[in-house]
């Protein structure tokens, strides 16, 4: 039996099912990160005056700025991969999806360099409350990047064969993972100033 509403829209929601599903999932993700942002505010107010700003000076702003630009670029290549499918250009899709994965990989490598530099300076989550929430937030964000990369890779190579059998459903799949990917970018857009600049 076929799964209903993978392409056609339901008359009651006006959406194909996966679109509604991913937005509900993203709403739950807002609350997940919201809980941790709430914890950040709590810890910041609870720390001695100016301590969070001072502890944050240990972080590498140029590297984080570069990572922000890389993640924004990956959002553009992601949306371009979807647009390429809409234009029936599978070659460009492959190129843009590959670039998205490359950006994600570079982001993780930079994050690895940042983490190892901290560990080399004996800075760990247990060092103080700032680094406890820093490692928690950036670690959870990094896990989201890794999870996204697994799905992106699937749609880049093994899952691409669906383009031949059901191009509309495949395009919808790419749109759905794109929404997730943009959300991960959006979270970083707030993490960057909150952790590195304030």
């Amino acid at each position: 039996m076929d799964i209903p509403y993978t392409v056609e829209e339901r008359s009651d929601t006006g959406l194909f099912n996966a679109k509604l599903g991913i937005w509900l999932f993203l709403a739950s993700e807002v609350m997940l990160f919201g809980g941790l942002f709430s914890a950040y505010i709590f810890l910041r107010f609870g720390a001695p005056d100016g301590a969070f700003h001072e502890w944050g000076q240990e972080l590498n702003i140029p590297l984080a700025t570069l990572n922000t630009l890389i993640l924004i670029s990956s959002s553009v290549t992601m949306v371009m991969s979807w647009a390429s499918l809409k234009l029936q250009d599978i070659k460009k899709y492959k190129l843009y999806m590959g670039l998205t994965l490359l950006c994600a990989l570079v982001f993780l490598v930079i994050k690895y360099l940042e983490y190892t530099a901290k560990f080399d300076h004996h800075i760990f989550p247990s060092t103080n409350t700032f680094f406890a929430i820093y490692f928690t937030l950036t670690g959870l964000h990094g896990l989201h990047i890794i999870g996204g990369m697994i799905v992106l890779f699937y749609l880049w190579i093994p899952g691409r064969k669906m383009w031949l059998s059901n191009s509309e459903q495949f395009t919808n799949r790419v749109e759905i993972v794109g929404l997730y990917w943009h959300f991960v970018d959006l979270v970083w857009i707030f993490l960057f100033p909150v952790l590195y600049l304030l």
Partner: peptide
């Protein structure tokens, strides 16, 4: 990002309502 990359600017009303409800709970959390 939300308006253009995620196409919220032209998305169905149902999604806007879901996100508005989420925003209310998010601000309570803050």
């Amino acid at each position: 990002v939300a308006s253009y990359f995620m196409h919220l600017i032209s998305e169905k009303a149902l999604i806007t309502w879901i996100l508005m409800l989420t925003a209310v709970f998010f601000f309570i959390l803050m």
